[in-house]
Simulated scan of single mutants.
Amino acid sequence: MALKREDDFELRREHLKSLSDDELKERFFMLSEVVTDPLIELAKNSTTPSIERSVLLRMGFSSIEAKEIVERIIDAGLMGKGAGNVVLRVSEKLGTYYLTTGREMAEGLHMDLAIEAFRGGLGNGSQKR
């Protein structure tokens, strides 16, 4: 035997009764933003070492190189910028091929330039992602 749900629609809509269609539509989209904004922020600002290694693998780095690059980027506090983005930005600043730059970064080189590019003002590098 199924339980019957009591109909409380009229009670729940009381505060919306006086709104026009346009006002209801505006309220709907405002509430939609309230629900989705935190999810969008989470997606923009959150990543994991696994995701970043995956990006680097797709850029052509070996798994060992990707692991080292990600670890160094985490240590530098740049994880939120994206490992691939950091490698590309540094390679642009050096004027070298990104695979070469990334491999050098895996060995510990250029991290000062990476930090400077994202925290201090090498042109576009200081902008948020």
Rank of each mutant, 00 (worst) to 15 (best):
L42Q: 06
D7K: 06
S32K: 01
T47I: 13
R13G: 11
G80L: 04
F9D: 05
L94S: 03
M30R: 04
T36Q: 02
G120H: 07
I115M: 03
V35E: 00
E10Y: 10
M105L: 07
R89T: 15
F61Y: 07
D75I: 13
G125S: 00
E71A: 05
S54W: 00
V55W: 01
K17W: 06
S18M: 02
A76N: 11
A83S: 04
M1L: 14
E33W: 04
K67M: 05
M79A: 10
G102H: 00
G95T: 12
D7E: 02
M111Q: 02
E104M: 08
E33R: 03
S50M: 04
E41G: 09
I51D: 03
T47A: 12
G123K: 01
K25R: 09
K128A: 14
D37G: 10
D22G: 15
S18K: 03
R103N: 04
S46G: 12
M59L: 09
M111Y: 06
K67E: 06
G123M: 03
S18N: 02
A117W: 05
S46N: 05
H15N: 02
G95P: 08
L31I: 13
L11W: 10
M1R: 08
F61Q: 01
L42C: 13
E10L: 08
S126L: 13
R53Y: 05
T101V: 14
L78Y: 08
G120A: 06
D22I: 14
R53A: 09
I40N: 07
L109T: 10
M79T: 14
N124E: 09
P49D: 07
T47Y: 10
N45S: 13
K81V: 15
E65C: 12
S91V: 11
E116H: 01
T100M: 01
L24Q: 11
T47L: 13
L42F: 15
A43G: 12
M111P: 14
E10R: 08
T48I: 09
K17R: 07
H110F: 06
A43K: 01
F29Y: 09
G102M: 01
A2K: 00
V86F: 02
I73A: 15
M105F: 04
E10T: 14
M105P: 09
L56Q: 00
K128H: 11
G84T: 10
E65W: 07
E107C: 11
L78V: 15
M1E: 12
E116W: 00
R103F: 04
A66R: 01
E65H: 09
G82I: 12
E116T: 13
E26Y: 09
Q127Y: 15
V86K: 01
D8S: 05
S91T: 13
M30H: 14
M30W: 01
E41K: 11
F118L: 14
L56F: 05
S126W: 11
E104W: 04
E65V: 12
R27C: 12
L24A: 11
T96A: 09
S20Y: 04
T100Q: 00
G84K: 03
S63W: 04
A43N: 05
S18W: 02
L16N: 06
E92G: 13
G77C: 04
G102C: 06
L56Y: 01
G125D: 00
G123I: 12
S63N: 06
Y98M: 03
E41N: 06
